[in-house]
């Protein structure tokens, strides 16, 4: 049987910002994350939850921003993007 070989597509590095309860659970305000090219917002979230499982409790209520604009989980990430998960806001 021939083995299918996936083409090498490389990696991307994104800049993550953590706020409020996310920052406290992850222990830092910002970091770099390297992901396979073609990764989406949801992939970054999965990696963060693997590191800080208590983040999972708030999964349903988080929003997300890419380059400081609200985005969706299936949005694909580009090298150099700034990504921030937004826990429930409480300004005012």
């Amino acid at each position: 049987m021939p083995t299918k070989i996936e083409p090498t597509t490389g990696t991307i590095t994104i800049h993550l910002l953590h706020f409020a309860m996310n920052r406290e659970l992850l222990g830092c305000a910002e970091e770099q994350m390297t992901l396979p090219a073609g990764s989406a917002v949801a992939d970054a979230w999965t990696l963060l939850v693997a590191r800080a499982p208590r983040l999972a409790k708030g999964s349903r209520s988080q929003m997300v921003a890419v380059n400081s604009r609200y985005a969706t989980l299936d949005q694909s990430l580009q090298d150099g993007d700034e990504l921030a998960f937004i826990p429930p806001v409480s300004g005012g």
């Binding site: 349903r60 209520s61 806001v89």
Partner: peptide
């Protein structure tokens, strides 16, 4: 932190 009480209000889950 405030705001967590807004959880589970029908938003799509991650």
């Amino acid at each position: 932190w405030l705001g967590s009480q807004a959880e589970d209000k029908g938003k799509p889950a991650l």
